[in-house]
């Protein structure tokens, strides 16, 4: 399988609010290598969440193309996209978004249950993953019986339990206190290092950015910088004025995940 897991090619996203057009993304081009731990940084309204939603096949771009693991999202049916989200992607949302009627264990198990994994395997993985996010002993608690940080850990557990190729996390620490947020990012980083799961996280939280191997900064819907934490130029960097560049140009870029190092 290719080492490039996500290709975002000259993507624009425009929302219409009445007669006004809001340009959420203005020609974004980006590559993400397998095993990366990348952060989309930027202020509110910069287009981070929009980009994550597009990569996660939750929304469709106005123009441009996105492919995930070599499959062009625009050519896939709704059913195929649901299948892709189920089997290859993991999601962590800003507001935890657990299924309120299920316990921590059941929430973490949910995706695997949909995947049709056998009970024994589910149990083994869920217990392991809950332990790895520090929730051992809290398996039977419902979301309302967990703190915000614990809920977000369950969300992370749910996202990674099925061993997806890519985890998309939207402001995962936004609703957490500083210490809990740091712990959570450390947990995700550990999972990335130990299991090689690719993470694309949107955040403007310095704690998260500090942990990132790669920081892609967005402003007004365009990438303004794409940097390794050691200061090297970013992979697939595509400044605003390059939005209309021929796709050949960025394909020539270095998309390997080898030349980045940890934080």
């Amino acid at each position: 399988m290719s080492d490039v897991i996500v290709h975002v090619k000259n993507v624009q996203k425009t929302y219409k609010q009445g007669s006004i057009e809001v340009h959420a993304l203005r020609g974004v081009t980006l590559e993400l290598a397998r095993g990366e731990f990348a952060v989309l940084a930027g202020s509110s309204g910069s287009g981070k969440t929009t980009l994550l939603n597009l990569v996660g096949a939750l929304d469709v771009p106005t123009t441009g193309e996105i492919d995930v693991e070599g499959r062009m999202l625009s050519s896939m049916t709704g059913k195929d996209l649901a299948e892709l989200r189920l089997r290859r992607l993991g999601f962590v949302f800003q507001a935890y978004n657990l299924i309120p009627v299920l316990s921590a264990y059941e929430n973490a198990e949910y995706v695997m249950l949909l995947q049709g994994e056998p009970a024994e395997k589910r149990r083994e993985k869920v217990m392991k993953v809950l332990e790895s996010v520090g929730l051992k002993g809290m398996e039977n608690r419902r979301p309302t019986e967990l703190s915000g940080g614990q809920q977000q850990r369950v969300a992370v557990a749910r996202a990674i339990a099925s061993e997806p190729a890519l985890v998309l996390a939207d402001e995962p620490t936004a609703n957490l206190d500083s210490k809990t947020g740091s712990d959570l990012v450390a947990t995700m980083r550990k999972l990335n290092e130990e299991h090689g799961i690719t993470f694309l996280i949107s955040s403007h939280d310095p704690k998260v950015i500090r942990h990132a191997a790669r920081v892609i900064r967005l402003e007004d819907g365009a990438i303004v910088s794409d940097e390794r934490q050691n200061g090297k130029p970013a992979v697939g960097y595509n400044p605003v004025d390059a939005a209309t560049e021929d796709s050949e140009a960025w394909r020539g870029g270095n998309a390997d995940g080898e030349d980045y190092d940890g934080d």
Binding site: L86, F91, L114
Partner: peptide, 16 residues
């Protein structure tokens, strides 16, 4: 709506 949105986002198909 929100709960169902999340369920669909993480791969729950329409039939389910």
């Amino acid at each position: 709506t929100r709960e169902f949105g999340v369920m669909m986002a993480i791969g729950t198909n329409k039939f389910l």
